[in-house]
Amino acid sequence: MSDLAQMSAGAVRGPAKRTGHGTQAMAGLALVALPMAMLLGLILWPTMRMIGATVTLEDRIGADRYVAFFGDAYSMANLRFTLEMSLISALTALALSFGIALYLRFSAGRIATMIHALSLFPLFVPSIIISYALVRFLGPNGLFQLLLEQIGITQYRTPYLTPVGPFLAFVWENLPLPVLVLSAGLTQVSDHAVEAARDLGARPLRILWEILLPQTRRSLLIAFALIFLGILGAYTVPYMLGPAAPEMMGVYMQRTLGNLQDPDSAQVQAVVLMAIASVVGGFYIATMLKSQGAER
């Protein structure tokens, strides 16, 4: 192409590119405008109002309701139970799903495909069904008890009204998402990265500890945040399963609002739970931004 031709081509391309860029930017803004408006109007604004309401007393502004919440042994027991249940269930689901993702990453064939499909199955089962299924399976005269009786074990005491009940449901319910996230993370670790470690003398446990876990650290953190937040605000599973007291915050909030007709306390419980979720959520967003930055 001659210089003149290049210049004229540049002259045509230049403004067209700028116009295209402007249109693209406008289109982008238009696409995010509606969800952003909904987020601001239906979530952030009511949230701010609610937080304001929790500190607005009849005659002044004060944290009295929070003092009452943190001073109440039953509320604190519920909060502790919720945090412990969320943490233990999330870590267990994460460990199990990492095992499944590891198997799927390094295996091929029919069995691997079957396990993959099975691990994703809970994704398509609603919480209420999972809860009922567990009640029918683990509950009194459930399938598990009948099976045990067939082999002569008659001392079975159902765990579905103990913390084990919701724990099992949470773990089962929360397997698919981390399997997907961790499988994606593990595909980023090349075969050669693993083989190089093997070639230099590393055994499987060392490869897991020094190569696979650090290389999938971000996926693990993201998966943990997603499961933890889901369990923290769960309602259906702890409503159906688990002990009557202490109770998980989702059920506690609903009972405070519905049965006790005490919206002020329910709002305080919601704000406390949201504050905890925000910390984990912030952690999740920071990890996501960091990983996007690393990709750039």
């Binding site: 090349s190 050669h192 083989e195 093997r198 230099l200 290389q215 650290r217």
Partner: peptide, 20 residues
């Protein structure tokens, strides 16, 4: 096994561990 052989391999993709 590979981890016991007195060999060491340089891969095409260098296969360095990015977190180290």
């Amino acid at each position: 096994q590979a981890n016991r052989r007195p060999t060491a391999m340089v891969f095409q993709s260098h296969a360095l561990w990015s977190h180290m």
